[in-house]
Nucleic acid binder design. Structure first.
Length: 464
RNA sequence: GGCGGCAUAGCCAAGUGGUAAGGCAGAGGACUGCAAAUCCUUUAUCCCCAGUUCAAAUCUGGGUGCCGCCUCCA
């Protein structure tokens, strides 16, 4: 499998550090609000990466943190009149509600910064011992000048960075590019005891600490949005490699932004949509399909129209699956005919093409194209009366591939007797050409959320 | 100023040397009591110019336009 590695600026063959295992860390949300769809992109695309690696048989250990202490957390908690801890707990719960609807699997570990204060302190001590950090007042800073590789991820050197940097008013730093590992307590802020006085961790340190704790000093994959390349991930490298003397992450994966009107969507610009807001109008699975319909490193524009397109595309997928499930119920268990076997022989080709797309730096857009080609193949070939073997094989392939992308999560389910009876009654009416009654029943069922379709192969239903 | 990305049909989007996947929307047709679903047909000189090559959307050079990072941010 090839992955574009931000560190080397090339596609590289993925070779895990430990054969058969993948250890990956992805930067999670700061839990001071509902997350927006810009945040959702990395959650979704790296969830797909994880699912694909699991599908390929790797033992994947996936860690995604919650940042539950920082300036924004403190500010928001004050506005709400609650503690930072309460705020964090609330929005962690909200995160899972939205993430579940987006089809994002739980990470193996979802560590919180505030649960790792002791580990963070130990880590900072280690950096100080190595001369990579210094205390200034009640703060502790990372000494960027002392770390040789600083800038290697973002492709910049310290001098260029400083030229572009705003004048830093914090005169206690030795160098403007130095960043806080530990921030001394200010009035009204939550704080923990430390060798440098009461305070709280800086933002970057938590990821180095938790990634190391749960995955080891060298991990396989570290991922996040492109805007984290600098300074966040650059700083993580400085911290982690400074402390361990070993490479931190072997592959750095970064997704592109979501734009609105061709402008970056971000919290600071205020032009963002939360996933929660979107969920009131759209099926979040359509949002997922939308995210996967272009390559993860390309920027994508967000709009209602595009979401509607994705919704329609999703329905095409569901129709294909549901039709197969309907057919399977009555499919005869018998040996497949030669013609049916010809169809069966075509199925593995779609899996191959799908994998080929995924192996090329997680090309979900291409992979999705393969799924739609499979859908057409299925729709053109599958008819009532075909062997259960054929229908089952088609269904299995479709479910397998959509499952890797985390799509088609809603089960078709079954109908209760009352509705079955209504459908039967309508069939009788149709037989008698009582169209008025038949249409009335169909309308009534629609009110109840059941849509009927009279196909040449008989009546079918699906949920609204 | 330093670093980086993008430009393919009405919309979205793959494709990185051999005359353009797929989805959405539209048009025509088949099927159908109607509707829906489904199938078939149909819609692109790949931003511009020059070059390399038997052959370029794909490589090289130049240009134009748009965007991002260098500051909290996915």
């Amino acid at each position: 499998m090839k992955l574009y590695n931000t560190l080397t600026k090339r596609k590289e063959e993925f070779v895990p550090l430990h054969p058969g295992e993948v250890r990956m860390y992805s930067c999670g949300p700061t839990v001071y609000n509902y997350f927006h769809i810009g945040n959702a992109r990395p959650f979704i695309v790296f969830d797909v990466f994880r699912r694909y690696m699991e599908y390929k048989g790797y033992k994947v250990t996936f860690v995604q943190n919650f940042t539950d202490i920082d300036d924004k957390m403190i500010q928001r908690a004050n506005e709400e009149g609650i503690t930072v801890k309460e705020l964090g707990e609330r929005f962690i719960a909200e995160y899972f509600i939205d993430a579940d609807k987006l089809g994002i699997k739980r990470a193996d570990v979802h560590p919180k910064a505030t649960d790792h204060i002791d580990d963070i302190i130990e880590f900072i001590k280690k950096l100080m011992d190595k001369g990579l950090a210094y205390q200034a007042g009640n703060d502790v800073y990372y000494n960027t000048m002392a770390f040789e590789g600083y800038g290697k991820l973002s492709g910049q050197n310290l001098e260029d960075l400083e030229l572009g940097a705003r004048i830093d008013i914090n005169e206690s730093k030795k160098n403007p590019m130095d960043f806080a590992l530990w921030k001394g307590q200010k009035p009204g802020e939550p704080a923990w005891d430390s060798p440098w006085g009461k305070g709280r961790p800086g933002w970057h340190i938590e990821c180095s600490v938790m990634a190391t704790k749960y995955l080891g000093e060298t991990i396989d994959v570290h991922s996040g949005g492109q805007d984290l390349i600098f300074p966040h991930h650059e700083n993580e490298i400085a911290q982690s490699e400074g402390a361990s003397g070993k490479p931190f992450a072997r592959y750095w994966l970064h997704n592109g932004y979501i734009n609105v009107d061709n402008q970056k969507m971000s919290k600071s610009l205020g032009n963002f949509f939360t996933v929660r807001d979107i969920s009131r109008e759209f099926d979040l699975e359509a949002v997922r399909l939308f995210m996967l319909s272009s390559h993860y490193r390309n920027p994508i524009n967000f709009s209602r129209e595009l979401l509607e397109q994705a919704q329609s595309a999703l329905e095409r997928l569901y129709n294909a699956r549901n039709n197969l499930e309907h057919l399977l119920k009555d499919a005869p268990e018998r040996p497949s005919t030669d013609e049916e076997k010809q169809f069966l022989d075509k199925l593995p080709g779609y899996t191959d093409s799908f994998e080929k797309a995924m192996e090329d730096d997680i090309n979900t857009a291409d992979a999705l194209g393969v799924i739609f080609e499979l859908v057409r193949e299925i729709n053109s070939n599958i008819k009532p009366g075909q062997s259960a073997e054929v229908i089952r094989a088609a269904l299995d392939t479709l479910k397998k591939l959509t499952g890797i992308l985390g799509l088609l999560n809603k089960q078709m389910g079954s109908l209760d007797d009352e509705i079955e009876a209504l459908i039967e009654k309508r069939q009788q009416a149709r037989k008698e050409k009582n169209w008025a009654l038949a249409d009335k029943i169909r309308d009534d069922l629609k009110e109840m959320g059941i849509i009927l379709e009279d196909t040449p192969q008989g009546v079918r239903w699906k949920r609204l």
